[in-house]
Design a protein around this nucleic acid. Structure first.
Lengths: 246, 246
DNA sequence: GGCTTTGCTGACCCGTCGGTCATTAATGCT
DNA sequence: AGCATTAATGACCGACGGGTCAGCAAAGCC
């Protein structure tokens, strides 16, 4: 090592932002927003601490940019899915579900999701972006397929049409479970996918029986989950003395 | 009010821990572990900062104790549910699901859940406790009911038997959705519950049709979600330089 | 009332970390 | 080469907050 090969101190204005974004995302997903340290992010990006602040004014800004950088591709994928491909609605829905399971098990999507849900209260606009790009998008795609299936007589009228999020629920659960309980209690991937398909198509099949009524003979519809006039009680009392939010 | 009602500085060794626990839980659920400040917790409990440390040695200890204090009652509820009540398996499962929705929409259970998932990596033993008391317990109850239904000929053999978490998934999704997206896009409570029941009983009904096969005629079973030999690739590279964990 | 015990207080200590800026040196221009 | 420009550096600053402790006063005892 005649020359200082360790720290050549290169100037690469173009490449920096991307590298820092990536390093930031890695630290944030590993530690969460609070515990992640700017200096670690800098080191991971192969850069000094001050350099990070040249490209992103604050830690918050870096966080939002990092998450957004992973949200953008989702939009592209969703757009593709929105274009109606050939095939029956049943085939499409089946493919959609299988694809969702693959995404949940093989990509870092759950990490992004957890981070957004975790830091949601602190970054409302990020929550909004995530909702728009992932959740609403997913619901829209599903709804489109369902409508098509109903029109074609493949699916019957079902409450699922009014709550498409139900169709995403098992994938979301798989994501959360994998992130938190995998080592205690592994996700039964095959059974999960099979059961997911059974549930969805069991509910949608035009020749399926209606779900059972309650013991009193009332349908689920009449179940009074929450009386219209009474909002759910607050879970915990509001703070007594308001303080500054950082 | 002859005595100094403003700051009497009472000594109440018995009542303190509970009050501090409650105050801590409130602050932690509102702000998360990191941002919550010990001094705020103390003020909320009507006590000086130092007093908190008399009962709990560290912030971490308080956090764990606070969450545990809410986990304990869950166990009691689960025990009750485990005792087989009368009625058909169908009725029981239906009641279980309706009860789950009520719990998710009306209690602070989702807040506890979010906190555990959020701080999971930092508090592995809390994750384990939550898994044991809530998730595993829920699965056990469901599995018991399913087994009973199968034995009675009410339910057919289904992949749900091998992935009972599927039956909890919609409630979990409702919880997360409500916590994060309620104001952007309210949870359709009625449709959610109805759809949930349709899905579950659609999959379990002994006279329901089998789910559709793929375009190539293969059943879901053959779908190769993840080749046995290849573990899912790491989502992000591990940290290069290990640092202390607080 | 006088003394002891001890629950309780809050000013203080100090490590940590987001953010700054004077300095350094790589690059571009002539 | 010499100069100007500016990306990059890392020592430094200041706020913040977890945790401490010497002292205070309420309860108990005589």
């Amino acid at each position: 090592m005649t020359d200082g090969s360790a720290k050549p101190r290169r100037r690469r204005k173009e490449a920096r932002p991307g590298e820092i974004l990536e390093a930031g995302l890695a630290e944030f997903t590993e530690r969460g927003f609070g515990p992640a340290r700017m200096e670690d992010i800098a080191r991971r990006a192969g850069v000094a601490k001050g350099t990070v602040f040249r490209y992103f004014p604050t830690k918050e800004a870096l966080f939002e940019a990092a998450v957004q950088s992973r949200l953008a591709p989702v939009l592209a994928g969703a757009e593709a899915a929105l274009a109606d491909p050939p095939g029956t609605a049943t085939e499409m829905l089946r493919a959609l579900i299988i694809e969702a399971h693959r995404g949940v098990m093989d990509s870092d999507m759950p990490l992004i999701m957890r981070m957004v849900l975790t830091e949601g209260p602190r970054f409302p606009q990020l929550l909004e972006a995530y909702h728009r790009l992932s959740m609403a998008r997913g619901q829209e795609v599903i709804q489109r397929v369902l409508a098509r299936g109903v029109a074609a007589g493949e699916f019957r009228d079902s409450a699922l049409l009014r709550a498409p999020m139900l169709i995403m629920a098992p994938a979301l659960m798989a994501a959360m479970w994998r992130l938190n309980f995998e080592r205690l209690d592994p996700v039964p991937r095959q059974a999960l996918l099979e059961g997911h398909l059974e549930m969805v198509f069991g509910a949608l099949a035009s020749d399926a029986p209606r779900p059972p009524a309650g013991p009193d003979g009332s349908a689920a519809k009449e179940q009074d989950l929450s009386p219209p006039g009474s909002p759910a009680p607050r879970c915990l009392p509001p703070r007594s003395s308001p303080r500054r939010r950082s």
